[in-house]
Amino acid sequence: MEKLLTTGKAKAIGVSNFSKAELETLLKEGSIVPAAHQLECHPWLQQKEFTQWCQIKGIHIQQYSPFGNQNEIYDSRKNMGKLMDNPVLVEIGKKHNKTGAQVALAWGISQGHSVLPKSKTPSRIRENLEGDFKLDAEDLKEIEKIDKKLRFNDPSKSFGYEFYTDLEGKKS
């Protein structure tokens, strides 16, 4: 991938789902710092220490699955409810005339991340675009308290490789 930059076929390169140890190896052995790191991140899996470490290294965070467990396939803990319905997010949303989902998006943006929500529904796409608003310090403190270190996307079994071994949310 580094060679692509010299050919002009790419303007930047990045990584996805790297652990801290894997990124440290890449930084030591590679010649280019990845422009971005795409990873699962949401108010139930905040990964503050790791994302701050990436930002210090000059690696921008692209946050996927900003709504956590919206797909039942990933919800092995049945009856836990949806992140966007979390009472803390809903209450903060009421204060700003926003939804819990919009608060989850605003939280990611407040962290300096690019937030990548997925939707095929035009009304939800419009709603997601309205998730770019400012949360105050009190809101952020309340959201910090709901971090469950809960990861929903872990393809380790299907890939035959243990991902996220040194990150929050890794089930043993």
Score class of each variant (00 low, 15 high):
residue 151 R to Y: 07
residue 34 P to K: 04
residue 6 T to D: 15
residue 145 K to C: 09
residue 165 T to W: 10
residue 157 K to A: 15
residue 125 I to P: 02
residue 114 S to V: 14
residue 40 E to F: 03
residue 139 D to W: 01
residue 128 N to T: 05
residue 166 D to Y: 03
residue 138 E to H: 10
residue 135 L to Q: 03
residue 118 K to I: 00
residue 152 F to A: 00
residue 24 E to R: 08
residue 108 G to L: 02
residue 5 L to D: 03
residue 55 Q to A: 13
residue 92 I to P: 02
residue 125 I to L: 12
residue 56 I to M: 15
residue 90 V to S: 09
residue 117 P to E: 03
residue 70 Q to M: 15
residue 135 L to G: 00
residue 143 I to L: 04
residue 12 A to Q: 11
residue 147 D to F: 07
residue 171 K to S: 14
residue 18 F to G: 00
residue 118 K to S: 01
residue 91 E to H: 05
residue 65 S to I: 04
residue 25 T to K: 15
residue 85 D to L: 11
residue 18 F to W: 06
residue 84 M to C: 14
residue 12 A to F: 08
residue 17 N to Y: 08
residue 166 D to K: 04
residue 147 D to K: 06
residue 104 A to L: 01
residue 159 F to K: 10
residue 6 T to E: 15
residue 56 I to G: 15
residue 78 K to P: 08
residue 149 K to S: 12
residue 108 G to E: 01
residue 146 I to W: 02
residue 138 E to L: 13
residue 61 I to L: 07
residue 155 P to K: 04
residue 161 Y to F: 14
residue 23 L to I: 14
residue 44 W to I: 03
residue 73 I to M: 14
residue 105 L to F: 08
residue 82 K to E: 05
residue 132 D to R: 07
residue 27 L to T: 09
residue 8 G to R: 11
residue 99 T to S: 12
residue 81 G to P: 10
residue 69 N to Q: 04
residue 34 P to G: 01
residue 89 L to N: 00
residue 65 S to T: 10
residue 154 D to Q: 08
residue 108 G to V: 00
residue 35 A to H: 11
residue 41 C to H: 05
residue 162 E to H: 11
residue 22 E to W: 10
residue 163 F to V: 05
residue 52 Q to W: 06
residue 29 E to I: 10
residue 169 G to A: 07
residue 155 P to Q: 03
residue 125 I to R: 11
residue 96 H to A: 00
residue 116 L to C: 09
residue 66 P to H: 03
residue 49 E to A: 13
residue 141 K to H: 09
residue 118 K to M: 02
residue 90 V to F: 06
residue 41 C to I: 13
residue 2 E to C: 01
residue 111 Q to E: 12
residue 103 V to Y: 00
residue 90 V to T: 14
residue 111 Q to R: 15
residue 99 T to M: 07
residue 94 K to E: 10
residue 144 E to W: 12
residue 34 P to S: 00
residue 23 L to F: 09
residue 59 I to K: 02
residue 114 S to G: 13
residue 48 K to S: 14
residue 99 T to R: 07
residue 90 V to C: 06
residue 70 Q to W: 11
residue 62 Q to H: 14
residue 117 P to V: 01
residue 86 N to G: 03
residue 161 Y to K: 14
residue 24 E to S: 12
residue 108 G to C: 02
residue 11 K to I: 12
residue 152 F to K: 00
residue 91 E to V: 06
residue 51 T to G: 04
residue 1 M to I: 13
residue 58 G to R: 09
residue 121 T to Q: 07
residue 124 R to S: 01
residue 141 K to L: 07
residue 75 D to K: 11
residue 7 T to I: 01
residue 148 K to D: 01
residue 23 L to K: 11
residue 44 W to H: 04
residue 137 A to R: 03
residue 129 L to D: 01
residue 130 E to I: 01
residue 56 I to S: 15
residue 163 F to E: 08
residue 109 I to G: 00
residue 112 G to Q: 03
residue 141 K to E: 14
residue 152 F to D: 00
residue 53 W to G: 02
residue 49 E to C: 02
residue 169 G to W: 06
residue 170 K to N: 10
residue 116 L to K: 08
residue 131 G to P: 06
residue 164 Y to K: 09
residue 17 N to F: 06
residue 119 S to Y: 03
residue 144 E to Y: 14
residue 33 V to P: 01
residue 17 N to S: 10
residue 67 F to E: 02
residue 115 V to C: 09
residue 49 E to Q: 12
residue 71 N to H: 13
residue 27 L to P: 06
residue 150 L to A: 07
residue 117 P to G: 05
residue 66 P to K: 01
residue 80 M to F: 12
